[in-house]
Structure formats: C-alpha cells, structure tokens
Simulated scan of single mutants.
Amino acid sequence: MDIKGFRKDYKSPVLQKHMLHPDPFKQFELWFNDACNKNIAEPNAMSLATANAAGHPSLRTVLLKFFDMNGFVFFTNYKSRKAKELAENPHVSLLFPWIPLERQVTIIGVAAKVSPAESARYFAGRPRESQLGAWISNQSSIITSRNLLLAELEKAKNKFLQGEIPLPDFWGGYRVEPQSIEFWQGRTSRLHDRFLYTKDEAGLWTIDRLAP
C-alpha cells in the first residue's frame, strides 16, 4: 500500500520560548487543560515505552491518573509485562499525542512504585466493575478464551458480594519522575517548534529550542 501522499501541513501559531512557563509541570498543565477544553478524546491517554534488561522495547497506551511537580502517575497490574520490565529497567518514556491540536509532549524519566496508601486511595475511587477486573485479570498472561475471564468475573462478584473490594496486593501505581520534557507544536513546512526542558544536577530546569 503506497501512502506517501498522506500529508498535512500544520498551521499552528508560532511558539516562542518566552511564551512557555518556566516550570514544565505548569506548562504541561496548560496544554493538558487545552486538550480537555477542546474535547480531545481521552486527553490523559499516553503511550508508555519500556525496555527489559536486554534492551528489548515494548509500547502500550495507559491512562495518566495524576500529575504534580513530583511526576506522572499511572496504575497497572504488578505482574504485567510492563511491570516486569520496569523491575529490570525503570527508565521509561511517555508520549501524549494531541494530534487534533498539532501538539505532542514527550517525557523521559524513571518510574517507581507509589506507596500502597496512594494505590489504595485511587483503587477505592474506581468503579466497582473496574475493581473486580483488577482482581481477575492476570495481565499479559496467555488465556484460552474470553469465557474464562467471564467465569472468573462471576466468582469475584460472589466473593466480594458484600462490602468494599480491597486493593489487590499485585496491583498499584507507578510515578514517572521526569528528567526531560519536550513540548512539540506543529508548524508549516515541517519547521515545527520544539522546546526541551532538562533538569540539571541542582534540580533546576533549563529550556532549549530543538531543530525540527
């Protein structure tokens, strides 16, 4: 299939360094709010790239559930492929592809588990069906059919028929502490505006323009 003709010339306005907030987390919040206000589908969806100890990469989409100056938090099964790779190699990359806005944000950093208390607080606020799903899915393992999942779901419903559903000990969050954050905005003639925030040894952020 020949798709070399697929092309779009981006028309976003100019992005200059002085227009950026000196704090990358504040700048991310500004762009994230723009994505929400423009009704971008699942603006908190982000691609998460990991690699195992041998350097073999894998990629998937997860949902950002919290962010502040300490990092970006997502939740998962601690027995999943991503969790096993994070145990071997905590270095990750995140990508927010806000394509309708002609924007991307790329984050490079290190992932670490959040506290059990943080995971419990988030888990308690999930819909009951999602809580049950966390209990029954041995994420990333091979299963013979969907019917097996549905059977396990019925067992879990009966097990937790009354009261609150507790946090599984194999499920929780990771916080990605960024080492760099790049803000990309599409421009005409492929001369895109790219600005890279990098943290120095003193914990201060510098901003550099990158060639498109």
Rank of each mutant, 00 (worst) to 15 (best):
V14M: 03
F72V: 08
W98V: 02
M19T: 07
P43F: 14
V14P: 04
I99E: 00
N44V: 15
W135K: 00
R209H: 00
L149A: 11
Y122G: 13
I40R: 12
K159P: 08
A111T: 04
P22F: 07
S137D: 04
I99N: 12
T144E: 15
W98P: 01
C36S: 10
T106S: 04
L161E: 14
F195Y: 14
W98C: 05
R60W: 06
A211I: 05
E152S: 03
I108R: 14
A35L: 01
L95P: 05
C36K: 05
N44M: 15
G203I: 00
F67H: 11
R81H: 15
R175E: 03
A83N: 01
I40P: 12
F96N: 13
F160C: 08
E201K: 15
G109M: 03
K4A: 13
K26R: 06
R128C: 07
Y197Q: 09
R175I: 10
A151K: 14
W184S: 02
Q16M: 05
E182W: 04
S115F: 12
D2H: 00
L196H: 07
D193G: 09
A41N: 14
P13T: 09
F75W: 12
F25G: 09
G5K: 06
G55D: 08
D34M: 09
N89V: 03
E182L: 02
N39P: 15
T198G: 01
S47K: 08
D208M: 02
A45F: 05
Y10K: 02
P57F: 01
V73C: 13
F183A: 08
L149I: 15
D23F: 08
L204E: 15
K157W: 12
D193H: 01
E88Y: 08
F183L: 01
R126A: 00
R187V: 01
T50F: 07
A87F: 09
G125R: 05
A117S: 11
F74A: 10
D169Q: 03
G55F: 00
P127Y: 04
H192P: 00
G186T: 01
D23L: 03
E164S: 13
R60A: 04
G71M: 12
D68M: 06
L20G: 00
P168G: 07
G109Q: 01
N52F: 02
N158E: 12
G125H: 10
T206I: 06
K159G: 04
P97Q: 14
K26T: 14
L167T: 12
G5W: 00
A45Y: 03
G5D: 04
R103W: 10
R187H: 07
Y78N: 04
L48V: 02
A53Q: 09
M69D: 13
W171K: 10
H18W: 02
S119D: 08
G163Q: 13
N77A: 09
V105L: 06
W184N: 12
K38V: 13
A49P: 03
F72A: 09
P43K: 04
